[in-house]
């Protein structure tokens, strides 16, 4: 590109290569067959895609709320990057949910026009972060669990879910490394950071069990979905290793919050998220963006 006329590029409509997104956007699922695999119920597949898609959409939203608030510029970039990866996963999964449902809903209708009771995310993703330590504790737990899940998903009988899993593994490996790195630095940093990191780990612990509960939808989609109960051992081993390196205590088993996010039972925090996420889109009916 000639730097002296970068501005004139605006009238140059045939040059897709200059667009970061937009007309030249490459579809990460190009060439992947989208027909439903044999014997798979479309409604179940749609429900499953919403479960793991909403997890990504809602946690991405919480991370977006950190933009301009990070403790250092490198973290500003990392948090935005993780939010962007999760948003990308959510878009693919919501799109797949719409296809499987077969009612013509696209990613935006599913993100912007559903009511809180129709969201299927786990409660862990919707909580507010009290401080940077809470952001890290949640991200450590979520990305360790999701990395194991996506890794298994890459062998799904549904070629679309398999492709999403394979793509997501690369992204979430970095998210887990980032969170583990900060868990260690904060846990084994100053007295204050040690206390705060321990408090943050303790605070997410009641939300763990929901991640590993086998839902009816998971059970009906054997071979397509990943049974989350099968991920617990790998998760526990990674957490033990990270917490030990961070000189933090593994919290004692707590009585699990009776979380039913997968069935649409959420806290007030989800309403707050959706008011922000959906407000403008709902206020401009017929708008094109």
């Amino acid at each position: 590109m000639s730097f002296d006329d970068a501005y004139q590029a605006l009238t140059d409509h045939d040059d897709d290569a200059r667009w970061a997104y937009g007309t030249g956007f490459s579809d990460p699922l190009a060439g992947v067959p989208t027909a439903l695999p044999e014997g798979v119920d479309g409604a179940d597949l749609a429900a499953y895609c919403l479960m793991i898609g909403d997890d990504a959409l809602i946690l991405s939203h919480r991370l977006q709320q950190w933009v301009t608030r990070a403790p250092e510029l490198e973290d500003e970039m990392a948090i935005a990057n993780i939010a962007l990866d999760l948003l990308g996963q959510a878009r693919l999964l919501l799109t797949r949910a719409g296809e499987a449902e077969g009612a013509g809903r696209d990613e935006d209708e599913l993100a912007y026009l559903r009511e809180p009771g129709d969201f299927r995310n786990v409660l862990l993703t919707e909580r507010v972060d009290a401080d940077f330590g809470h952001l890290i504790a949640r991200l450590l737990v979520f990305s360790t669990w999701r990395l194991a899940l996506l890794d298994h998903l890459s062998a799904s009988r549904d070629p679309v879910l398999a492709a999403i899993g394979a793509k997501g593994v690369k992204e979430v490996s970095y998210h887990r490394d980032y969170a583990a790195g900060w868990t260690v630095r904060l846990g084994d940093g100053t007295d204050l950071s040690h206390q705060r990191m321990q408090a943050a780990i303790d605070a997410v612990w009641p939300f763990l069990d929901e991640l590993f509960e086998t839902h009816d939808v998971d059970a009906r989609l054997a071979g397509v979905a990943v049974d989350p109960a099968s991920l617990r051992a790998e998760f526990d081993a990674v957490l033990a290793q990270v917490l030990s390196a961070a000189t933090l205590e593994m919290p004692k088993a707590v009585e699990a919050a009776t979380s039913k996010g997968r069935d649409g039972a959420h806290g007030e925090e989800l309403n707050e998220i959706l008011a922000e996420l959906q407000g403008l889109a709902r206020a401009t009916p017929g708008g094109v963006w």
Binding site: L84, R91, E276, L280, W289
Partner: peptide, 10 residues
Amino acid sequence: TRAPSLRRKA
């Protein structure tokens, strides 16, 4: 957080 489509948000 308020972007009116997921593509614009990204």
